[in-house]
């Protein structure tokens, strides 16, 4: 029997590539930038499996162009680039990598929170430009206090829980809003469950940890921003479209909130001419939530395991649409 054909849409850690290469005839897209949709469809035409990431559009067109496709394995926890319903209709299992990114992503969200509070990237830029001419001044570069401040966590899944744990070490008061209440975690991390208006009105930091769904699209828009404190800082390390970028720009420009720190944008990458990038009170990182050596390796290995399982007709260890299995 010939080896199945696998398409890997970007270079990934070696350990994962070897797992795939041992079981499949492997084709790896070698460039940093993703293949355009036409190229991707051409490359997928003969593929039995495809290992994707968040930049690749996986939709009905792609499925039509890849008649042999038996598995889509996404190296991410989010799946908003994949038409999962369409994959399910065609009985194609979709793999993903939940669990392994929680710690790294919570770390990144907390790093952003601290950086925004203490104006770290802004101050660093100032030093590099030669702005630091006075050794010390008691009224320069004043930022927000993090310890003992109130953090409001929206979305109490695995990443939200890790945020709460980190906030405890900073003696923060923790409020959260989530679809599902988590009584055990409330006791463990001394958190209070609130409604959205209370959370927005009382928090010094609002951190978003919801998946992107039709319900969470522009979850934070003009109305929500208006409820936040003028000293508040918004952190988004979830998905870009959870925040309405136009109203965020207005709020930051008019200082109706103090600052924002984003690991994700809408669209992504952000347009270099986006007015948000003209603001000093905004930090934008290029979607680095899971960007540690260990986490990316774990994600890639899990994605490779999902891919190989799919190619061999076994159930995926981590499947987003298990209903494809009878």
């Amino acid at each position: 029997m010939p080896k199945p054909k696998a398409l890997v849409t970007r270079a990934i850690p070696q350990e994962a590539l070897e797992l795939v290469a041992a079981r499949a005839e492997m084709d790896v897209w070698p460039h940093d930038e993703p293949p355009d949709p036409v190229t991707l469809r051409r490359m997928a035409a003969r593929a039995d499996g495809i290992l994707t990431n968040i930049m690749d559009r996986i939709d009905a067109n792609l499925f039509n162009a890849a008649p042999n496709l038996k598995v889509v394995s996404q190296m991410a926890v989010g799946l908003d680039n994949i038409d999962v319903a369409e994959a399910t209709r065609r009985r194609i299992p979709v793999g993903y990598t939940p669990g392994v990114v929680s710690n790294a992503t919570a770390d990144q969200a907390f790093a952003l929170l601290l950086a925004a509070a203490r104006r770290l990237t802004e101050a660093e830029r100032w030093v590099r430009k030669g702005g630091w001419k006075i050794a010390f001044h008691p009224l320069f570069w004043l930022g927000a206090e993090v310890h003992q401040a109130t953090i409001g966590i929206i979305g109490m899944g695995s990443i939200g829980l890790e945020m709460a744990k980190r906030a405890r070490g900073f003696d923060m008061r923790i409020l959260y809003y989530s679809r599902t209440r988590k009584p055990e975690a409330e006791a463990l991390y001394d958190m209070e469950f609130t409604d959205m208006p209370t959370l927005l009105a009382e928090s010094d930091f609002v951190s978003l940890h919801v998946p992107l769904t039709p319900e969470t699209h522009h979850l934070i828009s003009a109305n929500e921003l208006a409820q936040m404190k003028p000293t508040a800082i918004l952190v988004n390390a979830a998905r870009g479209p959870v925040v309405d970028p136009t109203t965020l720009y207005q709020a930051l420009r008019d200082k109706t909130i103090a600052a924002a720190a984003l690991d994700v944008t809408s669209p992504e990458p952000i347009d270099p001419n986006d007015p948000l990038l003209t603001l000093e009170n905004l930090v934008v990182a290029p979607h680095l939530g899971s960007s540690t050596v260990r986490t990316r390796t774990r994600m890639a290995v899990l994605a490779a395991q999902n891919l190989v399982a799919g190619l061999e007709g076994r159930p995926l260890p981590r499947c987003a649409n298990p209903q494809v299995y009878p």
């Binding site: 970007r10 850690p13 930049m55 770390d107 952000i270 934008v284 540690t292």
Partner: peptide
């Protein structure tokens, strides 16, 4: 998490894509 480097790249219009092997740091 190489935050300054990443944030400055975004500001300079150098964020072109997400890549599994870019900006990796220690946990």
């Amino acid at each position: 998490r190489r935050l300054v480097e990443g944030a400055e790249a975004v500001r300079a219009g150098k964020w072109k894509t997400w890549h599994p092997l870019h900006y990796l740091g220690p946990d």
